[in-house]
Structures are given as C-alpha cells and as structure tokens.
Design a protein around this nucleic acid. Structure first.
Lengths: 254, 254
DNA sequence: TCAAAAGTGTTTTCTTTACACCCATGG
DNA sequence: CCATGGGTGTAAAGAAAACACTTTTGA
C-alpha cells in the first residue's frame, strides 16, 4: 500500500473492520514535553498518528508497526491506553468529503465511513532518534508543544488528555525516562523531564536522592561541558534494573 | 434475540464485526473472592461472561448491558481492563464444532468463526444482589472461588489473571468495597475483603486507623449481633466522599 | 569577579509499622 | 467463666519534605 488509492481499495479486505488505532507519542526536547501530530489535508485540523490492524496481525504489534513507520524507531515504549467506543466518535461526513475530494466514487471507500472503534496507545520516544515520515493522508508531521496543542479531529483531544493523565499517574509507580531521553543525560535534565510531565517544580536535592536511591541510574565520570556554569555529571540508565522496575513497580508519589 | 438461532442469524448484521467483550466479575462472599463463570456446552470448559457490541452502541455501554443481563444489577462498577488482540486467541475449530452440533450449516454462523478481538472489562458487584441468569450458549452460570478456578476457554485465564493483577494494583490508589459489600458491613468484613484481594493478612489496628483516616466510612451506632463474641460496629460508605476518592485517588499501598 | 547552575548533608515532620491490653459475647 | 474476636493507643522506625552552604564555570 504505497499510495492513498491502493490503501482505499485494498483496505476493505486487508484490515480488521471497524477498528482503528491511535497513538499519543510523547517526546522531550529542550525542557518541553512534545507530542507528534499530523496535519490533515483539506482543513486546519490535526490528528494523532494512527492506522489499522491487518486481519492476521496482533493488535499491539500493529501499534508498534504504525509507530515504526512513522518514527523509524524499533524498540519503542508502547502501552495500551483505552478503548474509545462512542458510536458517534467518527466523523462520517468529514471522511466522505475527503473521499469525494480525492475522486473516489461508487462507495469504494465506504468501509472508511463506518463507525470505528479505536484503541488508544501511548508511546515514549527519544526525540533525537525520531525521523519523521509523512504519509498519504497528511501533509505535515511534526512535534507540537504540549502547552500549545492545535484543534484535533474527532475525539483525539480526549485521547490526548487521557494519555497525559495516564502518564502523570504512571510516573508515580513506574520508572520514566529511558525512552524519552538520550543515552546520556544529566540529573537536571531528568528532573526537567519530570517537571514537564507533572507540570510543577521539584526540589533538586530530594529529587536526586530519590533517583539515586532507586538505583536506576549510573553516574559517569564524564560531565556535560560547554554550558555556562558548573558542568553537571552525565548519567546512563541501568537497563536491567530499569526493566525490573517496570515489572515490579516503584513506590512513592511526586 | 431470544434464542441461540436468532442470535446466530441476526448477529452478523447486528453487531460490530470481529469485536467481543469479556467481563471478569468479582464478588465477595463469606471471606472469599469469587468470580462469575459460565459452563460452556459440549465440553468441560468454563468461560467469562461476554458478548458483542451492537452497531450503534457505545462499547462501555455494551459491557454494562451484558453485565446487567447477566447479574440483574444496574449500577455496576465497571472498568476497561485491556484489549486482547492476538490473532490466534480465537478457537475457530471449537466454534465451528459448536455450530455444527447445533445444526447450523451453509456458513450461517461464519461470522462467529472469524478472528475476534476482545475488550476485557472487570466489574465489582455486591454478591448478595446478584440474580444469575444463564443464556443460550451456556448451561451453568455460577460463582467460583478465586482459589479454585477451572479450565477456561481461549485466553480467558489470561484475561482473569490480568484482571486480578489490576485489582490488586488499583486497591492501592482507589477506594474498594462500596461495590463489593452490602450497604452495611463491619470493619473486620472490610478487612477480610482486602485480605482476600491481596492474598495476605493485614494488621487489624493499622487497617482500621487507615480506613477511618480516609473518612470514607461512617460508623453506625448499630452493631452486628448474633455472632459469638463481641458485636462489631456496622459501617456504611459515605457515597460522596467515595466518589470523590474514585476520581482523585487515594495514597499509600498495602 | 560575579552570576548562575550544580554538588552535597542535616534536621524536622509525617507516615508506617509493630506491638499489648481491655472489653463484650455466646457457649 | 473462659475462649474468641473486637475495640483502642503508643512507641519506634522509616520515608518525605524543608532547607543552606560550597563549588565550578563562562561571560
């Protein structure tokens, strides 16, 4: 399916009917939490990256495939968020309009105007590793600041809101950062990530004590030079302990 | 759809294709956590109560309907659990066998042998209010002890396991009990519910202090008489505070 | 040399845990 | 009258929060 026409014609038989996936992809750059959004053709609305499940494909695997196609990243932190199943969540009129504008007739794309149930996912990715790719249904694919999200199609704002709430909740019980930060990072950077997610300031000293206490990060002898002021140490995550913590959970809230 | 034949014939057009719902329904009785299971016809396997989503129906509303039909309870605590989307999770052979044994031919029930994606839900209900109803695809509907669950069809054991893990996790952040206990209950009963969910013993005194500290329960002047030994006080939940706690969350783990 | 950011430790407060005694009831 | 379960409080340990000074660096 290399182009939109193929997608429309073959999609009816290739995909599980009435089911879509939408992904809230979080990234972190220069102290800001970002979200990957697509600008839709024919109007001013944006959308979460999404797609469909092939008839023989695992649902979670489909979400991973969609993310990979879009960001180029293979090992991605990806979690189911919620099923959005309101019968009125789809915008049939809008979809019909797009199909007409693209010259589809005789109900070729009718499968797309059905009521769709979507599985929302959320993903955490290393901003610096992402290579964005646009596809046939969008004209722009870019990172948007969490603090200035444009209008989104259908119920995508709701999905985004749910994802952010989930992330803010999970940060209390799960280690966060391995997937959002580059391999080497400083403690202030990690703290700034936490502050961006939580939307509030944290105490530098208590933050560091807690992080070191978890034993999830290793301090390197290197420091991050080049900034004005004292050079902070670089850290890496301890992958084994991180994985373990993902399974067993952490404790204590922020 | 009052009988199985109608269900098979009309189901194809009435339901969202390839999508099912399955519910893990928890109840609590005489110190034991129970789960509602259905005995399937034609073999020794049991199943979680489940169903399908009408084409015009909200997914969560469908889950509530299925629970209502099965237990007679209207206001139910019901939460999405997870989407189970392995393409091999369905057991097409088994379903075909059942259709054949029931005398369906010419592919009348073929829609049922497709690959299905299921949305797992979990529900907490007041054991004493439930009035069980069997349906056309099962011969027995009954509460089973969590400690002695029989073999289940397809991936239902996995769904059950996920639900129990979720419940054990949520008990740390959410109030639990309003939906599982009768209107009036004693503190030892509430504690016994927590112990059944967590699978471990808790300290009587610390448990009570914490529960009272949350302010979610009101002590009545009544006591539960009739038991041997000292009569324990009865409590009720404070519905407003309980709802509030459900939204805002509690803190502290068990 | 100084402003701004980073490193480090201690005190206080609160939360959680552990633990023991008295009371009421039915058998 | 006594065995059993239910009610209550307190002391100790551990976790979280508050807080100040010193070090490094580039401008």
């Amino acid at each position: 399916m290399e182009n939109f026409k193929e997608f429309i014609i073959e999609g009816r038989d290739a995909f599980v009917p009435c089911l879509s996936l939408d992904c809230v992809i979080f990234g972190f750059h220069s102290g800001q939490l970002k979200i990957l959004l697509l600008k839709m053709r024919y109007d001013e609305l944006w959308a979460l990256p999404g797609g469909f499940v092939y008839k023989d494909e695992d649902v979670d695997a489909a979400a991973a495939r969609i993310l990979r196609e879009r960001t180029g990243i293979k090992d991605i932190f990806l979690q189911q968020l919620h099923v959005f199943g309101d019968p009125n969540r789809s915008d049939s009129k809008r979809n019909k309009n797009i199909l007409e504008k693209d010259g589809f007739e005789n109900g070729q794309g009718d499968w797309l105007t059905e009521r769709f149930i979507t599985v929302g996912y959320y993903a955490l990715v290393d901003f610096s590793k992402v290579e964005l790719a646009i596809d046939y249904s969008s004209e722009i694919c870019e990172w948007q600041d969490l603090t200035s999200i444009p209008s989104l199609i259908m119920d995508h704002s709701c999905i985004l809101k749910t994802a952010l709430e989930r992330l803010r909740k999970e940060i209390n019980y799960q280690p966060i950062g391995l997937n959002l930060l580059p391999a080497k990072f400083t403690m202030p950077e990690l703290q700034s990530l936490y502050e961006a997610i939580l939307g509030k300031k944290l105490d530098r000293r208590n933050f560091q004590r807690r992080m070191l206490g978890y034993g999830l990060v290793n301090r390197l002898t290197e420091t991050r030079k080049g900034g004005a002021h004292k050079a902070p140490y670089l850290y890496t995550f301890n992958n084994e302990k991180y994985k373990q913590a993902l399974e067993e959970g952490l404790q204590g809230g922020w």
